[in-house]
Design a protein around this nucleic acid. Structure first.
Length: 474
RNA sequence: GCUCCCAUCGUCUAGCGGUCUAGGACGGAGCCCUCUCAAGGCUCAAACACGGGUUCGAUUCCCGUUGGGAGCGCCA
């Protein structure tokens, strides 16, 4: 076996394709990607689909699309573990031939019985070695294959995140590496694949930390040099409880549908469990420049949705106009159930809404008055703002606006000033709010002059006229 | 139950024995700006889990307690 060369790291992301790309997995992928990019190495994608019952091509595609959307690119793969079972089985045969593994005839039921007895007695269960020295042959009947572990000896490694780690071999016990149906087991498959793919750095969730001694034993049995391991802290839900798919473990696709930008999600994820001084904002390039496993924390972290919202608005504010328009269009189309196309008005609108929106969904909602002429009037706002007292000034404003030869922030503003001058005691706010309700149906919008300017003269006048008709008689 | 891991503001974190009256960010509160909502500016509240050591000196090192997490499959 070749010794991995850590100077050009090869990392891998090995999702099991059941369901969608999940937040915790995505962050693991991001860490692998960042590490590989930082050190000029490669990232390999390997689909761990050996559990045929739970794996589907559909979720494999969803996982890959999620990675692409996040801007995580890879250098090799996707390879499928299911297509490599001959390699895994060959490794088992090698171990059998060298006596590093042996056949075991203990049945599931027998094992279960002995296990519960041991645990009931307050001891930790490890395989008791009943078949260990029986030297069972191929024709011994239904059997599994177990890895033969030394009775004692440290299975230790220096974790890039957790530091010196390890367990004694006696704590692990001889574990099954091939099922009685002839299929290889996860740990064996992973190790064989990582060896044959030349993986130098295994960066994965901390839930695998306790599995690592077994895998180290497997590397040794296969005469392979173990890679460097880095276990990254888990992301937990509210109250520090395990992230539950049902409750809070939102898939990457869901974040996308909720109107989050990939840049924001990336920035958010990279900062969960990792920091770089006081820096909060990280572009893709900055992630690749500064990511460092040594600075990764050891304690599990809660994902803070408010921070994501803040980051998302930050990136919305920074996105170039054309990209923001493009990003918004699907959300806006969905909002008004009608297809929307780019326009100069939409470009202007987006400039007004970007600092008012934390997500694209929110931006679409705030922009529906522009995209559609079907106004959703808020009853409370109509009642309060469109009252008899405003009829005369509003009529006055309507007429002035109708006569305008040029339509702009400035010309519209001059109309307001003229109306205000003609009506004693009328304040800007008292006029602007009714106009806002007339234009948008509600009390929230960009500045009133900007709103009018973007909407355009015909639509604005039409809406003010409609509002005038809604004012009840005094 | 057993093994292992973790522990700074509500949250993400800085801190790697004295620079800590513990810094930043999100969130919260207040003020300013203001035609609404935002954005922006300024200010404030908010943490070293607890108990023992070690040391001239512990947020930082060690031990214990408590709390939390992970693992203990012929799942991945």
């Amino acid at each position: 076996m070749t010794r991995p060369d850590p100077s050009t790291p090869r990392t891998r992301f090995a999702p099991s394709p059941s369901g969608f790309l999940h937040l915790g997995s995505a962050r693991t992928a991001l860490f692998n990607w960042a590490y590989a990019r930082r050190h000029g190495g490669q990232l390999i994608i390997r689909i761990e689909d050996t559990d045929a019952e739970r794996s589907t091509r559909e979720s494999e595609r969803a996982v890959l699309e999620g990675l692409e959307w996040l801007g995580i690119d890879w250098d090799e793969g996707p390879l499928r573990q299911s297509e490599r079972s001959d390699r895994h089985l060959a490794a088992v045969e090698r171990l059998l031939a060298t006596g590093r593994a042996y056949r075991c005839r203990c049945t599931k039921e027998e094992l279960e019985q002995r296990r519960t007895q041991t645990i009931a007695a307050g001891n930790k269960w490890t395989y008791d070695g009943r078949c260990r020295d029986l030297e069972l042959a191929e024709d011994c009947g239904p059997h599994t294959v177990r890895l033969r572990l030394p009775a004692h000896g440290e299975l230790a490694w220096d974790d890039l995140v957790f530091g010196p780690s390890g367990q004694d071999a006696s704590e692990i016990g001889d574990r099954i590496i091939r099922r009685s149906d002839g299929q290889p087991l996860y740990h064996l498959a992973v190790v064989v694949d990582d060896v044959e793919m030349g993986i130098t750095h295994v960066i994965r969730g901390a839930d695998h930390h306790p599995n690592t001694p077994l895998q180290i034993a497997l590397y040794r049995a296969l005469d392979a040099e173990p890679p460097r391991f880095a276990h990254v802290p888990l992301i937990v839900g509210d109250a520090g409880k395990k992230l539950s798919k049902r409750r809070d473990a939102v898939s990457i696709q869901e974040f996308q549908q909720q109107g989050f930008l990939a840049a924001a999600l990336r920035n958010w994820m990279i900062r969960i469990g990792w920091s770089c001084g006081d820096q909060e904002i990280f572009s893709s390039e900055q992630i690749c420049q500064s990511f460092d496993l040594a600075a990764v924390n050891r304690s599990s972290a809660q994902a803070d949705a408010d921070k994501l919202l803040w980051l998302n608005q930050h990136y919305i504010k920074e996105l170039p106009n054309s990209e923001l328009v493009e990003a918004l269009i699907p959300f806006l189309s969905h909002e008004i159930s009608q297809s929307v196309t780019p326009s100069s008005g939409l470009s202007q609108l987006v400039e007004l809404q970007r600092e008012r929106s934390r997500t694209l969904v929110e931006m679409a909602r705030l922009s529906r008055w522009y995209a559609s002429d079907v106004i959703e009037y808020a009853d409370k706002a109509v009642q309060k703002q469109l009252n008899a007292g405003i009829r005369a000034p509003l009529r006055d404003l309507h007429d002035a606006l109708a006569k305008l030869a040029t339509w702009s922030d400035e010309s519209v503003k001059s109309c307001f000033e003229a109306v205000l001058a003609r009506h004693d005691d009328l304040k800007m706010g008292q006029l602007a709010q009714p106009v806002r309700v007339a234009l948008t149906g509600g009390t929230v919008s960009p500045g009133i002059f900007e709103t009018l300017a973007v909407l355009g003269q015909p639509r604005s006048i039409e809406r003010i006229a409609a509002a005038l008709d809604m004012i009840p008689a005094a």
